[in-house]
Write a protein that binds this DNA or RNA. Sequence first.
DNA 1: TGTTGGTTTGTACTGGGAGTACAAACTACG
DNA 2: CGTAGTTTGTACTCCCAGTACAAACCAACA
Lengths: 208, 208
Amino acid sequence: MRKLPAKLASQLYGAAELIAERGLDGTKIEDIAEATGIPKATIYYHLDGKNAVLEFLLSDLLDMIAGAVGVAVSSSEDARTRLEAAVLAQLGVMLEHPFLCRALVGDLGRATRLPELAGALRTAFYEPIEQLLAEGVSDGSLRQVADPGAVALSVFGAITVVGLSAAVEGPSVDPSTAAVRFSAAVSDLVLDGLATPGSRDQRRGEPL
Amino acid sequence: MRKLPAKLASQLYGAAELIAERGLDGTKIEDIAEATGIPKATIYYHLDGKNAVLEFLLSDLLDMIAGAVGVAVSSSEDARTRLEAAVLAQLGVMLEHPFLCRALVGDLGRATRLPELAGALRTAFYEPIEQLLAEGVSDGSLRQVADPGAVALSVFGAITVVGLSAAVEGPSVDPSTAAVRFSAAVSDLVLDGLATPGSRDQRRGEPL
DNA sequence: TGTTGGTTTGTACTGGGAGTACAAACTACG
DNA sequence: CGTAGTTTGTACTCCCAGTACAAACCAACA
């Protein structure tokens, strides 16, 4: 898979909506050719088939997410603040690209079975969070939990599902406003939890 | 799609691992026939094709989850406690059926495009939580949040992603122990949050 | 026992679409 | 011009889902 020329790359995005709508299987190569204006023969000249089309689109999305989150995470604030920033960054990118997100949900299975993508998925979504939780414990802005791995996974799940679900609901008029709204909800949950002060009865000994 | 006889139904589960491993597309009907011992012609006599196989398997999984969560939710405890029970119940079923879960992730797109399943998915996963959060506010065991819908979605995401990821990691030796462990982590996060007491600086005015 | 109606299964076929082969045209650069 | 990469149309091949159908099988029941 040689790196394909910028022009073709940009045309390929025209296929995202199609794939999002019908899934990769429901989308014929001919359809992609028609939607993008790139003839079938040319597609096959550059890419190794349908999967490669999806792989190209999704790895791009994952790069964007990883990039945005990376920036958010590397400020000099405390970990708690950076976590909020990371949540916002991830949701921002996701809402900015609803079709890619829908394609991702739709062919998640195939995506996880494509080795490159599986790794990129981890890098984009999961690792920054895991990292941040650890740093939060060090700098005292986040509390220690019993099972950091599982908790990081939960946080990752909370963010991602909100983002995907928003994408599936359909493109929003104003993605960045929506991102702010959703990220507030997620951060609220993840930082402060749902228990009322009165019902916080079984903490593991740290003072209230 | 007439209701298919119990014997065939049970045989069909033999296809779950196959589908989980390779995805529905990577699985030929002939493979399913071989794995289950049900000849292709018989499969087609009862089911409307490959999708129907998946649909059958998944709707069963979703029923199990909806059932277990339903039980957990309908005790007479306060909402907070029932939420914990629901988390445990959902993860319990998911870890009990890793192959079905993997098939679900793998063909999530197709699943959401199958109208019956999309509804069942919502019923099994999302609605009970949404309900519970509302009840928690009434009975005082959970706090009020600004955007209940988005928060419910986050909680749903946290649970589900943990479950799916555990399923993808491979079947565990002792599913119910694993379920307890994971549900503890999720409940811990969802109820108490990650902020340290010192950093709880921007709550919306409710007293600490 | 024969008859009827559903189920089971093997075999052979059809059709659609992914991917391939290939040659002709086009482009760029020396 | 010549050489090398790219673009594209056309015409394939091949695989596999789904269908057709007929023969067997298995009740129940008169």
